[in-house]
Each structure stands twice: as structure tokens, then as C-alpha cells.
Design a protein around this nucleic acid. Structure first.
Lengths: 226, 226
DNA sequence: TAACCTACCAAACACTTGTTAGGGAACTGT
DNA sequence: ACAGTTCCCTAACAAGTGTTTGGTAGGTTA
């Protein structure tokens, strides 16, 4: 039995959102508030470990009341993840379409990623932990699709960089891709906004390590005492 | 109400295992078999999302039968994680006690980590995903303790390396630590044993990127066409 | 044959889970 | 004063959860 007529259509699948409802439509502002606290709880406890009542607690209401705003627990993560990915790809496409060189593209992608972590750290953490399980369900197919776009974008920049000589040619490029992708996004698990490092500064440090390594480059003395 | 007298004491807390039971003691071999399949399911579905009946299914028996071998679902992860950490630290301590230089220590730690991922990929994946939540419970306090040992070992090597000049001094060392730690262990999420890369080879590539970066070093021509 | 042990099954238990139905208080516009 | 809308509460539901209890087939030992 489908749900009643009171709820809005989920924004899920990050695409079409068409349904005419004249009966009831809860305010989108409250929706966003609730989604924000839900995302926080999801990120902290994990999706499956989070009960609807816990979210309601954090929001200062009872479990059933959440269903005035949302169809289901599932549609909450759906909306959290899809709105995050929409914003993420808006930023990514801006970078990819700017006609930058491969090295500058990688730099811009990394920086943009850390900005996104700064803005949506809860959503990123959820994406990190649960996307693998969620993407099995057809409803969350856009997660798999996004992952493929991701791979194409990064691999493209890396390959161009290798052929242009700005990246090393002796590396397994697929390994390098996973290396980059992981190092950037795991940061969401420890990053706390308002800390001593701005996202741009973290990006700079990460890029410095990824591009040049953690050992001193030519020109610096490699001391070897004892 | 505590559990009955039939089960063995959990090997958890990775330390003392003292209790005299003369009534019943299931064979340790079968225990290990079951723990292995349980670890596989936990790693694939997530701890909370995994039901006891699913584990029993994968083991070819009924849910209740698992309780002949184990106290609880919790004690299963406990034993999986603690035995993994025991083996891990055996390898780590061997490296740390070998009197290597800072760079060689880092290389050995990374290589050892990938070997551990090869052997215990399921346990590593579980550790990655659930340790944060689990460590909140006092039963899993050894997870937090292990994390601290981890930090000390890595930070120590990095600091020594900086003061000896083999690592760059201009990096936030704490950031570098998290960078190293994460990049190594996330590999468990995509690594499949029996693939085209041996753990040692993956370690070599990772170390090459981490130590020297993904851009060409001095001596190589940095082409810049157009 | 008898006693015993190992390793499982069958069936239920108490509890938690996501979700629904109906109602009501506060505020709005008329 | 009225109806309407928004937002939440109370109370319950069915399904699924981890766990327990008692039983039993098959092997080993005496």
C-alpha cells in the first residue's frame, strides 16, 4: 500500500520532481532543518543503526511526526545524498569545463572536494559509509552513476597529465585514481568545520603531499647523521 | 540475566582469557570457520545491517545454533576484531623493534599493513566502518587504545624523519599522519585478494606516490607543450 | 547397552523497528 | 465565529530483531 497523499514527492533520484498536490505541503524550510539534523545523526551513528525515534529525539519531536514531512526513513537519506551530489556536481562541472590543464584540474578538483566536505560533511560521511550498500537498491542507482562520472573525471585528468608529462608515467593509473579519491574523501571522517585549518589550506597540504611526496625535493639537503 | 554456562569466554579485549569451564567447549576449528563467514557477511553488509539469521544462512544452519558457539552477535565482532588486532600488532611491533631508520620504518609499516589487509581484508573492512561506533562501548575500549598506539607509532616515525631531514619539515605532521593512515587502510574497501597486484606491489606503488608524489622528480623532463 | 558429548534444530520469548491512523492545538484568512 | 491549514501527539500495528529453552541425531567412550 503506497503512502498517503500528505507527503511531498521525494526529491530523490536527483532528477524529475513532478507531482501535483493541492492538499497539503509542509514548509520546505522545516524540511531542510529536519534533514540537517537527520544527516547529523546518520553520520554519527550510521544509517542502519539510526532509529527513526533517535532522529525525532534530536529534532525535539516524536517518531511518528517525522512522517508528516517524509515518506520514509529511506527517503530521508535519499534526499540528503541526492541534494549533496547535485551541489557537488555543479562545482565539479564548473571545474571540468574551465579548460584547465591536467595538473590544475586535479588541484581544482581536490580543492573543490574539500570545500564540499566543509559544507556537507555529514552527507559526505554518510556517502562514504553507506553508498556501497545503498547503491544495491534500484532507488539509489544514481549513486553508482555518480561514482562512474567520478572515475571518468579523475581518470581523464590523470591520463591527460601522463601523456603531457606532468604526471609520472610509471604509475598504475587506476591505483593512483583510487589513491587520490580515497585520500580526499576519507578526510570527512575526521574533519570538523571551524577547526584550525580552512578547507583550502587542507587542500593545499594534501596537494603538496600528493603531488610532491613527503620526502624533500631536489635542492633540499638530505641529511644523514650518525 | 547473564548468559548460560555453555559458552566459552570471549577472547575479546585482546588480553586476559581466564575462566574455568568443564561443562562444554565447542571445537575451536568450527569456531574459526564460523567467525570467518561471519566476518565476510559483516564486511559486506555492515555490522548493524547484518542479522544473526543471515550469518546462520551463510553458515548453513539456523540462527539459534550460532549461540552454541558464541555468546552473542557482539562477541562475534569482538573476537573477529581482537584477533585481527593481535596479529596486526605482532607484525607492527616486529617492525618497530627492528631499529630501522624513519623512512625504512614507514616503508615497512605500509608494507606490513597491506599484508595484513591481504590476510584479514574482512576484519579490516569491519574495523574501518564500525570501530568508531563500537569503541563507544566499554567492551571495545581496546579499539581506542589500539588507535592511540597506532598514532604514536606513525607520528614517532614521522617526527624522527623530519628531524633527520628525510621527511619534509614544512608539512603539518598530524595531517600527514592522517593522510598516511587513511590512504593505507581504505584500500581494504576495494582490495580483492588474488587480484593482479600482490600486497607487496601495491605497497610499493603507494609508497612511491606517498614518498615522491605523482609528479615527475628531478631529472625527468617536465614537458609543457602549447 | 549405557552413558555422555558434540553440534545442531524447532519453536518460541521479549523487545525494537519503521510506519500508520486519528485527533487536536495554534494560527491563518474571511 | 468560522472553516482551513500546518504541525505535531497519542497510540497502536506488523514485521523483524537478538536470544533462550528444550530436544535430538550421531558419534565416542566404557
Amino acid at each position: 500500500m503506497p503512502n498517503s497523499t500528505r507527503n511531498r514527492a521525494s526529491t530523490g533520484n536527483s532528477a524529475k520532481n513532478s507531482e501535483k498536490k493541492t492538499t497539503v505541503s509542509p514548509s520546505p524550510e522545516r524540511r531542510r532543518e529536519l534533514l540537517s539534523t537527520a544527516a547529523e545523526v546518520f553520520a554519527a551513528q550510521g544509517y542502519n543503526a539510526t532509529t527513526v525515534r533517535r532522529i525525532a529525539d534530536a529534532a525535539g519531536m516524536l517518531a511518528g511526526s517525522l512522517y508528516y514531512h517524509f515518506d520514509s526513513k529511506e527517503s530521508m537519506v535519499d534526499e540528503i545524498l541526492s541534494t549533496f551530489l547535485d551541489e557537488l556536481w555543479a562545482g565539479y562541472e564548473a571545474v571540468l569545463g574551465a579548460g584547465l590543464g591536467p595538473r590544475e584540474t586535479v588541484e581544482a578538483l581536490v580543492t573543490e572536494s574539500f570545500r564540499e566536505i566543509d559544507r556537507h560533511r555529514a552527507a559526505v560521511a554518510i556517502y562514504q559509509k553507506e553508498s556501497k550498500q545503498l547503491s544495491a537498491q534500484p532507488r539509489f542507482g544514481y549513486l553508482t552513476e555518480s561514482q562512474r562520472r567520478f572515475e571518468r573525471a579523475w581518470l581523464g585528468a590523470l591520463e591527460r597529465g601522463v601523456s603531457e608529462g606532468v604526471f609520472r608515467a610509471d604509475l598504475d593509473i587506476r591505483l593512483a585514481y583510487r589513491f587520490l579519491r580515497d585520500t580526499v574523501w576519507v578526510a570527512a571522517s575526521w574533519y570538523r568545520p571551524g577547526g584550525q585549518h580552512s578547507p583550502e589550506e587542507i587542500a593545499r597540504q594534501y596537494l603538496s603531499m600528493v603531488l610532491d611526496g613527503i620526502t624533500p625535493r631536489a635542492g633540499t639537503t638530505t641529511a644523514r647523521p650518525s
